[in-house]
Nucleic acid binder design. Structure first.
Lengths: 206, 206
DNA sequence: GACCTTCTCACCTACGTGTTAAGC
DNA sequence: TCGCTTAACACGTAGGTGAGAAGG
């Protein structure tokens, strides 16, 4: 649980190892507005979905695929007057901040044939939930998603990839309405909140 | 696609390799009545669920896990006067009658830690659907489910397991009402048909 | 007519959404 | 009061049931 991943130079010139972020344009749209991810007790999915395509691997080698989420700085943030501003000193990172993709122990051959999806990863703000799929983060902090490829037989040979579009700030309720509208527009599960929706029994101020 | 699995002596005394059928009692209940499995165009799940726990494997070896469904005889069957009777000569078996579990290429260590579930397997009576999850069977024939463990590096080293409780006859609509009631009672997805159900708009003879 | 197959249906399970109101 | 968190909720997606009527 005390695994620490050290970002290495990328791409790896010796092996031509590379990773491509899927739905890059969508991630960029969110990033432009200021991505927020919701934390809940039971865990909330990442949206947009984090999916990666690998290339340039050794077809015969065995790989582990690991996702982790690290703080970009030591600040706490606050949404004020339509902007995210530093709001104090950040908390100490949680330990349970990484996820081993179940495809792990996979040959480079098979890995390169697939789009590796992390849709099962869930974000929470409580340590009570010890599920393997759950990553514990602090609310109102800024994070960067990373993905690591390690040789199964050599824990020290780790290749790290990070995409700046996948930076986000954690919240328990959306702060920026422009951001939440972007989620509603793009997430199929939020279709009920779209303008043309037929939502009944909308609770009004009583 | 022309894979043929030859049932070998079991259990394998050299390695102590073994497989246990989960929900054995439930399978037995169905078997006692006469298990039927529905075939549909899009594919129908197996119920009860076919789940297996392996033991006695080589922790370091790599295994493939394969399920197949083979005819128990060369007869066609018919349900008549509350009984299944031989009703003619059987069809020639289909080729697409096996399913490679996605866990395959897995170490014995990891495999033994898991209950291997085949809930994704679907049964159909049409060859039009070429999904990897779909097994093509003939309706009104009698079948036996089998599960095979093969060393990834040695296709000839195959261990086969079969449980007599998992024999069934294929149908397109249930023939034995005692059997369908057992399905309704035990399958959560059929809860709407239970006696205490609140089913509205039940279609009646018009 | 008898037998088997196909399609649609109401009804489930299971769970992913942002909102809202209440809680702290 | 203010800022943030929590739980309930309506509304989706996605897809697994057997019954019943219609088709062949």
């Amino acid at each position: 649980n005390m695994l620490q991943f050290q970002a290495t130079n990328q791409p790896n010139l010796i092996t031509n190892m590379n990773a491509r972020l899927c739905d890059e344009e969508l991630w960029q749209k969110f990033s432009d507005v200021g991505t927020e991810m919701v934390l809940t007790k039971k865990g909330r999915r990442i949206f947009p979905g984090y999916r990666v395509k690998f290339s340039g691997l050794d077809p015969n080698a065995l790989y582990n695929v690991i996702l982790d989420i690290v703080q970009t700085d030591s600040n706490r943030y606050r949404f004020q007057s339509g902007q995210w501003i530093v709001g104090g000193k950040g908390e100490i990172p949680h330990i349970q901040n990484h996820y081993v993709h179940p495809i792990s122990e996979v040959t480079g051959q098979k890995l390169m044939e697939e789009i590796v999806s992390f849709h099962k990863v869930k974000l929470t703000n409580t340590t009570a939930n010890r599920s393997q799929d759950t990553i514990v983060l602090h609310s109102m902090h800024r994070y960067q998603i990373r993905v690591h490829l390690s040789r199964s037989n050599n824990q020290h040979n780790i290749q790290t990839f990070e995409f700046p579009q996948t930076t986000f700030i954690t919240v328990t309720a959306y702060q920026n309405s422009e951001l939440s509208q972007l989620k509603i527009k793009n997430n199929p599960y939020a279709k009920g909140f779209r303008a043309d929706g037929k939502r009944k029994n909308k609770r009004t101020c009583s």
